[in-house]
Design a protein around this nucleic acid. Structure first.
Lengths: 215, 215
DNA sequence: GCTAGTTTTTGAACGTGTTCAATTACCGCG
DNA sequence: CGCGGTAATTGAACACGTTCAAAAACTAGC
């Protein structure tokens, strides 16, 4: 087996074992030593493949984001229906790994140092998540960035609620998804009114003055 | 010196030394060993007074929250002016300790385990911060919880922006404070219209169905 | 002043994330 | 097939947050 393939297989095995342990014991209670052992590697080898424990957690989320992109691409129906598919699907996809969400959300909102590779990676995944939402929105181009960012923040908030949702089938959070989308989606056409445009322009320029650009 | 006074003085000295070091080196680069040494104590003694490094960080924020309560009590003028005093004052008060903000914000949004003392402490501080904003708002009782929570989320977002603001006098973030309040405050009276009341009722009941109560 | 009880202090030790020099294994080329 | 170069692997060691048993210090009551 050529090296590239073997190393890729090893990396995948490591991640897979980590996910099983994170699911079983939680991220904090799972040690890198546990993970290396479960993958049949030494501790140092685990660090050869992933620079940190946090990188393992985040790698899962990057993969999950890819799944969301496919899900969004295949969703059909009204905007409300497509957003519903996306939001509910996101929660379902993450369900077995809810214990990792706290760590993930914290990473996503971490202001970090803008120059660090660490932060740039987070930003990249964040931007891709926002791009998926933006691609789902069929509204005017100038309105889309702000609306997509707002919906992404809603998604984050919902994930935070999901973490501690112990209702059967997490129906509380899923119900909140529906309620929130039922409120948010009818507001989107209001953004296309002159007043809506003015509001968006005002928010966007305030952010721009603070050097914050929504792409 | 009676014990209570001496131990209180020791605790204060420890916190003061920690804050100096956090300011100089950042929270992560500052070790508990550094802090203990700077306070003239052993490492174990430092842990006698504060249960964790994080607790030191958070203790500062609790004290800062108390200062905000006094500031809010003394603010006068229009609602916009009072909120401005509160928001700008918050940023100014935290300015020398911006390096600590990332850790603080993460703690404030951490979903944690609802049963843990750790989470309950965070929630308490969060609720006090929200209560200060609520006390500043002169609007109908049924509208106040939601508006206060929204403004508190705005404050959090502004703190995240503040962390990486390298403009002179952090004028970018302060400018954003003014822009944001200039947009938000005129919306508050709109909440008192029948349509506003209906919206607030709808949001509040959606949250209630998800077991989230805004107090 | 002595004693018992409590608080404060200490420093060795532990567990965990991480690092890194050395070794082993692998691959491609001549 | 042998060799050089590179990738993968190892395990000891380090730093840091945290813990805890033992010792020291202090206070109040007799």
């Amino acid at each position: 087996m050529p090296r590239v393939k073997k190393s890729e297989a090893t990396r995948k095995r490591l991640l897979a074992r980590a996910l099983v342990l994170f699911q079983k014991k939680g991220v904090e209670q799972t040690t890198m030593r546990d993970i290396a052992k479960a993958a049949g590697l030494s501790l140092g080898a685990a660090y050869y493949y992933f620079p940190s424990k946090d990188a393992l957690v985040f790698s899962f989320y990057e993969d999950n984001q890819r799944d969301m992109e496919e899900l969004a691409a295949s969703a059909t129906g009204t905007l409300r229906e497509r957003l519903g598919v996306l939001f509910h699907g996101k929660l379902e996809s993450i369900r077995p790994h809810r214990k990792m969400l706290a760590a993930i959300v914290q990473r996503l909102v971490d202001p970090g140092d803008p120059l660090s590779a660490f932060s740039q990676q987070s930003r990249q995944v964040r931007e891709r998540a926002i791009a998926v939402i933006a691609a789902t929105l069929d509204i005017a181009d100038d309105l889309r960035p702000l609306a997509a960012h707002a919906l992404w923040l809603l998604m984050l908030a919902l994930m935070l609620v999901y973490i501690n949702d112990d209702s059967p089938g997490e129906k509380r959070t899923h119900g909140l998804v529906d309620d929130a989308l039922d409120m948010a989606v009818p507001m989107l056409p209001l953004l296309a009114t002159p007043m809506g445009h003015a509001l968006v322009e005002r928010v966007t320029s305030a952010l721009a003055r603070a050097d914050i650009t929504l792409t």
